[in-house]
Design a binder for these strands. Structure first.
Lengths: 211, 211
DNA sequence: CTAACGTTTGTCCAATCGGTCAAAAATTTG
DNA sequence: CAAATTTTTGACCGATTGGACAAACGTTAG
């Protein structure tokens, strides 16, 4: 809301260089956190000098903020697509699948977000209690509607959403641990398919044996 | 394994002060990460001067390492207790409950661990691929046995353990987000009981409507 | 060509970082 | 008590941090 996004009018070089910096910053911020990352690191990863980087982003925080806002938008897209049309169980299943794919394809974005939340979300707190809460409340209402029609079991929709976030993002945020525990065989590229199969079964049927 | 724990023989004051420092360091490390935390911050939180703190722990890393080793031991206790005796579903249910209680009662420990893993676990990687993997493999075998007897549904035991970790620790690591989304009413002290109820239902029955 | 504008860099700065050290203060020991 | 030992502190250090700045360089339009 106070992004200062009032048509900054940028040249072609500015567009490209800013993109280069954001890409480098994503790499560095996501693995070291905001305070742990240094401007020098980002500049080197972007292949330019520190003063040159500071020509495109005047403060370290500006880079982080730009990254954060852009991230949140794409990160919540799958939830926004959760729709009232279509079969509820199918809808939920494909939401879980899409979230897991995002954890697989954009782990840095997930870790950047996790880092921010872990440290108390000092820079995005208003967004959480604002836009995010609004969106989740809205989708929780949709899910509640499904429960009323008997299409899915009755539970707490909010905690259901949390559990989907937690289980899917776990494969991005805790990737090191997952791979270490699974070992070279099970921890290879197939681990996301194994996770997808498991999560589908968990969320649909739980652990009680059939019959 | 190379903790340097060869009977350091400490005085009463050393015991107390070291404990005081570790408590303060847990607070600071868990909210700022290793690099984000400063010795001055920890010293101030512990109510002593920086050189005095460095008299008890010679390097910043020593504090973190001591904290980390102690944490891992207590943190994995619930999993170690997972036992072959008793009803499998009951056993799993109480494991989930215990993990959730730990997220509620020791959120700082959870966040400290999450911070370390998020940043690639540079300081505890050997432990993950060693002791932790061994423990998880062992418990996965126990769970597999339960599946063979038909007491619980067949799934991937490793990913089952991951999902329990993810869903329970989420309430510690992402606490800020959880409370922001739930709002003042649902996000109060009762949120852990709501979570417990939801998780029990999820892991036992899934989302398919009964019958 | 040249003036204007956009881009890049080397140098510098104050603040903060983790850590040292010698000396003072407090405590324990005989 | 006094000596020995442990604990605490103020002053200090080199390295790194985020950032400022003017000068140099490159590009483009007239």
């Amino acid at each position: 809301m106070n992004t200062g996004t009032e048509a900054p009018r940028r040249t072609r070089i500015q567009q490209e260089k800013r993109e280069l910096i954001l890409e480098a910053a994503l790499e560095v911020f996501s693995t070291h956190g905001f305070r742990g990352a240094t401007i020098d690191q980002i500049a080197e990863a972007a292949g330019m000098s520190k003063p040159n980087l500071l020509y495109y982003f005047r403060r370290k925080e500006d880079i982080h903020e730009t990254l954060m806002l852009r991230l949140l938008d794409t990160w919540l897209a799958p939830l926004r697509e959760l729709d009232d049309i279509g079969d509820p169980l199918t809808e939920l299943r494909s939401y879980i699948r899409r979230k897991l794919e995002m954890a697989r394809d954009f782990p840095r974005e997930s870790r950047l977000f996790a880092n921010e939340i872990l440290q108390g979300a000092p820079r995005i707190m208003p967004l959480l209690a604002g836009d995010l809460k609004t969106l989740v409340d809205e989708k929780a209402a949709v899910i509640k509607g499904w429960m009323r029609t008997g299409k899915i079991a009755r539970t707490d929709p909010w905690h259901l959403i949390f559990s989907i976030w937690a289980t899917t993002q776990h494969y991005a945020d805790f990737d090191v641990q997952v791979r270490a525990v699974l070992g070279p065989n099970r921890g290879g590229d197939g681990r996301f398919e194994d996770a997808a199969r498991f999560l589908e079964q968990l969320f649909l049927d739980g652990l009680k044996p059939k019959r």
